[in-house]
Design a protein around this nucleic acid. Sequence first.
DNA 1: TACATATGATCAT
DNA 2: TGATCCTATGTAA
Length: 271
Amino acid sequence: MPEGHTIHRAARLQRALLRGQPVVADSPQGRFTGGAAVLDGRRLRTVNAHGKHLFYRWAPDVTLHVHLGLFGRFRTHRREGAEEPLPPTTAGTRLRLVTADAVLQLAGPTACELVDPPAEAALLARLGPDPLRRDADPERTWAALQRRTIAIGAALLDQRVLSGIGNVYRAEALFVAGLAPQRPARALARDEFDLLWAVVVAMLRAGEKTGRIVTVEPAEVGARSRSRIPRRDAVYVYHRVGRPCRRCGTTIRAEVMVAREISWCPRCQPR
DNA sequence: TACATATGATCAT
DNA sequence: TGATCCTATGTAA
């Protein structure tokens, strides 16, 4: 399920899978039939991720914008060649792209649409720096935090402040950075922000690499590597309300912030 | 089989 | 802030 790490990973995998090849495109579900007809027969030039958004560049010149939202999901299949029969279409497939080597199916996205340059520019203008991108400028996030009166726990979910963080990474990054979610965003000290940014970058990169959200240090749960940590031990505070903090044993608390529950350790994350 | 729940975002109020 | 849209999964019944 999709925070920014999932999206960047999808972009990388799909570049390798589809780039350069003409596709057969359709919309088995029927809700993107017109768009699929435009893509049909084109070659994918590249796929780029920005925050939780994907931009597919096609030749001749067309751009497809995809946002998975909460429920969106990709399925990929490798094919031996054009003779190999296609996998059965999953119900609700909004877009299917088929090449001789691969099949990509997209179901349940919040957005799956063709965009012209002004529409794409408008989308990108709304997005803050993406810590997974080389061009990310933390100064823009720092400046945005200075301007807000909201809590840091609210700011991290605001994609205009920085893009790619979702509800799991918000809770986990604040824990590792030692910041209570309720701290006013503009009251963070510069060194607190620098640490938070570094934590976010490291977490998202680890997530992109493994395809899982594993934020605990392996040594803390007696594992040899992140990839060996079972799901129940993978996080410090997310969804752990009422249970003891892994570091200090204090009972994890939770409250709703920006319509989503956030958990934190009152001792490791003092106000 | 039914229901609750979920890593998101938008729009109306 | 609340309603709404989208789908898959795990648990309860």
